[in-house]
Lab assay of single mutants.
Amino acid sequence: MEVRTIKVFTTVDNINLHTQVVDMSMTYGQQFGPTYLDGADVTKIKPHNSHEGKTFYVLPNDDTLRVEAFEYYHTTDPSFLGRYMSALNHTKKWKYPQVNGLTSIKWADNNCYLATALLTLQQIELKFNPPALQDAYYRARAGEAANFCALILAYCNKTVGELGDVRETMSYLFQHANLDSCKRVLNVVCKTCGQQQTTLKGVEAVMYMGTLSYEQFKKGVQIPCTCGKQATKYLVQQESPFVMMSAPPAQYELKHGTFTCASEYTGNYQCGHYKHITSKETLYCIDGALLTKSSEYKGPITDVFYKENSYTTTIK
């Protein structure tokens, strides 16, 4: 009895394709271990004539594949690729409408935090270190965002349907971005203890939790000093293409032309909904596939993004 075979390709990165001759009487799992086709788990399936010449994702289970996976995804987590594939199996079914010149995501599976993050990423200057993220990001900007969303979920250790947080998501993504040249110098002034300067680099240099107003941050924000008295913390120097200011959701007025974009969060910790506000020729609110415009805006804002380049204080 002759062994019926077909020729397929296996890959971990969709760049390096490895030619395989597979036995049609055995499952993919018996031949390769966990195997995925377009995100779908085909591990328990036997090869079919229609699979001839198709590319299958496999887990990096030998040295060659491990090197290829690390170079593309910059992670050695053995569960990463499987999590990416199972997320992709959902995100490829989502709709990605162009809204006001940006790629958004039609609401499904509690994905409003991903839509808000995706919209924000198209408006701030950011370059990702893992080629996987950078490639998928370019495709997302062009309207094909399924891979990018699935990668975000995998890097953030999230599953489809789980509630997510924009600030946490951005923080994970910033860790995989090139923020080497970003720098922030802060000064804390206390009447009792004097003053202390701190220099922050990388992710810490672009994120701040405690106030939404970048102007206020430049002037000074009140913080408790270690001595128990009130101290003032203010920005001395900022070198970065953008800054992200966050605070627990509270009524906040966004003035046209003073910011790049913002995240609105309605609801409580267990259950809520994100919308995205962007400042173009007027203010726009993007909620999944829905767009509304207004000249002014007041609502429960939790993150505001500002364009920056270089700032030095005039406070002496």
Rank of each mutant, 00 (worst) to 15 (best):
277 I>G: 01
244 M>N: 01
197 Q>T: 13
124 I>A: 07
68 E>A: 09
36 Y>V: 07
312 T>D: 06
26 M>Y: 13
9 F>N: 11
111 N>R: 00
176 H>N: 04
105 I>A: 09
102 L>I: 06
123 Q>A: 05
283 L>W: 06
179 L>V: 11
243 V>H: 05
169 T>P: 03
64 T>C: 15
202 G>N: 03
228 G>D: 02
189 V>P: 07
26 M>V: 13
275 K>L: 07
164 G>L: 00
265 Y>E: 00
283 L>M: 07
16 N>I: 13
229 K>A: 14
148 F>Y: 06
293 K>Y: 03
102 L>F: 03
74 H>N: 06
6 I>P: 09
273 H>S: 00
103 T>K: 06
99 V>E: 10
289 A>E: 15
57 Y>E: 07
166 V>E: 03
228 G>V: 02
179 L>M: 01
10 T>I: 11
253 E>H: 03
194 G>D: 07
265 Y>F: 12
293 K>G: 06
158 K>L: 04
78 P>C: 10
222 Q>L: 12
281 E>G: 02
303 D>A: 06
305 F>T: 02
271 C>F: 15
12 V>Q: 07
153 L>Q: 01
198 T>Y: 15
34 P>Y: 11
43 T>A: 12
196 Q>M: 11
33 G>A: 11
43 T>M: 11
284 Y>E: 01
308 E>T: 09
52 E>F: 10
29 G>H: 06
161 G>E: 08
72 Y>P: 06
86 S>Q: 13
198 T>I: 15
208 Y>H: 06
39 G>D: 10
15 I>Q: 11
32 F>Q: 15
48 H>S: 13
271 C>H: 13
14 N>L: 11
75 T>K: 09
231 A>D: 02
132 A>D: 06
315 I>G: 14
91 T>D: 08
96 Y>M: 05
77 D>T: 05
54 K>G: 11
308 E>D: 07
176 H>T: 03
251 Q>N: 09
122 Q>P: 04
103 T>V: 12
288 G>Q: 03
115 A>P: 04
132 A>P: 06
78 P>R: 14
247 A>K: 02
92 K>L: 08
67 V>P: 04
224 P>R: 15
135 D>Q: 12
137 Y>C: 05
193 C>G: 03
206 V>N: 08
88 L>W: 08
72 Y>N: 10
75 T>V: 11
273 H>F: 02
59 L>Y: 15
16 N>T: 09
179 L>F: 02
77 D>W: 03
225 C>A: 04
273 H>C: 06
172 Y>D: 11
9 F>R: 12
162 E>Y: 07
200 L>Y: 15
275 K>R: 15
39 G>M: 08
96 Y>R: 09
11 T>N: 01
214 Y>A: 06
147 N>M: 09
48 H>I: 15
142 A>N: 15
300 P>S: 10
288 G>K: 04
92 K>V: 09
144 E>F: 06
141 R>Q: 10
7 K>T: 13
134 Q>Y: 03
40 A>W: 11
298 K>F: 10
105 I>K: 08
213 S>P: 00
4 R>P: 14
301 I>V: 04
104 S>G: 13
275 K>F: 05
130 P>I: 02
20 Q>L: 08
206 V>H: 03
154 A>R: 01
150 A>M: 05
173 L>G: 04
104 S>V: 01
201 K>Q: 14
242 F>S: 03
259 F>W: 08
159 T>E: 15
157 N>E: 06
87 A>K: 10
51 H>F: 01
254 L>W: 01
73 Y>S: 07
312 T>S: 12
272 G>F: 03
147 N>R: 09
200 L>T: 09
171 S>Q: 13
76 T>Y: 09
163 L>H: 09
159 T>P: 09
99 V>I: 15
276 H>C: 07
265 Y>R: 00
67 V>K: 13
220 G>I: 03
276 H>Y: 07
7 K>E: 12
107 W>L: 04
91 T>K: 02
304 V>D: 10
308 E>H: 01
14 N>A: 13
281 E>N: 00
12 V>R: 10
15 I>W: 09
287 D>I: 10
276 H>G: 00
218 K>P: 04
56 F>W: 08
302 T>F: 08
84 Y>T: 03
70 F>A: 12
59 L>G: 10
55 T>V: 13
228 G>M: 00
234 Y>P: 04
237 Q>N: 10
274 Y>A: 04
195 Q>T: 15
212 L>N: 01
161 G>S: 03
135 D>E: 14
196 Q>P: 04
95 K>W: 13
267 G>R: 02
286 I>M: 07
316 K>W: 15
133 L>S: 03
52 E>L: 10
101 G>T: 03
52 E>R: 10
199 T>W: 01
85 M>W: 13
34 P>C: 07
249 P>W: 00
29 G>T: 08
126 L>T: 00
91 T>W: 01
236 V>T: 06
21 V>H: 15
56 F>S: 02
53 G>C: 12
315 I>A: 15
53 G>V: 08
237 Q>C: 14
181 S>L: 08
121 L>D: 01
108 A>R: 09
310 S>Y: 14
170 M>A: 04
13 D>N: 15
95 K>H: 10
260 T>V: 15
117 A>S: 09
205 A>F: 00
297 Y>E: 03
160 V>D: 01
53 G>I: 07
265 Y>P: 00
25 S>T: 15
64 T>L: 13
215 E>Q: 00
202 G>E: 09
83 R>Y: 06
174 F>D: 06
173 L>M: 14
142 A>F: 12
140 A>E: 12
105 I>E: 02
315 I>K: 15
137 Y>T: 06
206 V>P: 04
17 L>R: 11
72 Y>M: 12
71 E>I: 09
163 L>E: 06
225 C>Q: 02
86 S>T: 11
281 E>M: 02
27 T>H: 08
240 S>Y: 00
132 A>R: 09
266 T>Q: 00
305 F>Q: 06
300 P>W: 15
24 M>A: 13
290 L>G: 09
207 M>A: 07
270 Q>C: 12
198 T>H: 13
272 G>N: 00
156 C>G: 02
182 C>N: 02
23 D>A: 11
150 A>P: 03
15 I>L: 12
177 A>H: 03
86 S>C: 13
137 Y>M: 15
167 R>L: 06
182 C>F: 05
90 H>P: 04
52 E>M: 11
184 R>V: 09
15 I>Y: 08
121 L>F: 08
118 L>I: 10
115 A>W: 02
128 F>H: 03
147 N>G: 11
177 A>I: 11
66 R>K: 14
180 D>A: 10
84 Y>H: 09
224 P>D: 14
40 A>M: 13
284 Y>A: 08
270 Q>F: 08
217 F>E: 06
92 K>G: 07
107 W>A: 04
314 T>P: 06
6 I>E: 07
137 Y>P: 09
48 H>P: 10
100 N>H: 15
133 L>K: 11
152 I>C: 08
118 L>C: 07
237 Q>K: 11
188 V>F: 06
119 L>H: 13
166 V>P: 06
232 T>H: 01
136 A>M: 06
129 N>Q: 14
302 T>W: 00
288 G>E: 00
197 Q>Y: 03
151 L>Q: 06
157 N>C: 08
80 F>K: 01
13 D>P: 03
190 C>P: 03
235 L>C: 06
125 E>C: 01
27 T>F: 14
208 Y>K: 04
279 S>P: 06
279 S>A: 04
238 Q>C: 03
116 T>R: 00
202 G>Q: 05
22 V>C: 13
226 T>C: 13
2 E>V: 11
262 A>L: 05
281 E>L: 02
285 C>N: 10
239 E>N: 06
28 Y>D: 10
92 K>M: 10
209 M>K: 04
292 T>L: 07
46 K>C: 10
230 Q>L: 15
139 R>K: 14
316 K>H: 15
225 C>M: 03
150 A>S: 04
138 Y>V: 15
220 G>T: 04
239 E>Y: 03
195 Q>P: 13
33 G>M: 05
268 N>D: 15
143 G>C: 01
53 G>R: 12
52 E>D: 13
114 L>H: 05
238 Q>F: 02
104 S>K: 02
249 P>L: 01
127 K>F: 09
8 V>W: 03
114 L>W: 05
316 K>E: 15
63 D>W: 07
200 L>I: 10
9 F>L: 10
117 A>T: 06
224 P>S: 13
183 K>L: 10
271 C>Y: 12
67 V>Y: 15
25 S>F: 12
212 L>F: 00
186 L>V: 15
257 G>R: 05
306 Y>A: 00
141 R>A: 09
91 T>V: 06
155 Y>V: 06
7 K>C: 12
77 D>V: 02
158 K>Q: 04
47 P>D: 05
94 W>E: 06
55 T>N: 09
303 D>V: 04
109 D>H: 09
233 K>L: 15
296 E>A: 11
63 D>E: 10
74 H>G: 15
37 L>G: 07
73 Y>C: 03
26 M>T: 10
80 F>H: 08
216 Q>Y: 02
122 Q>H: 03
168 E>C: 08
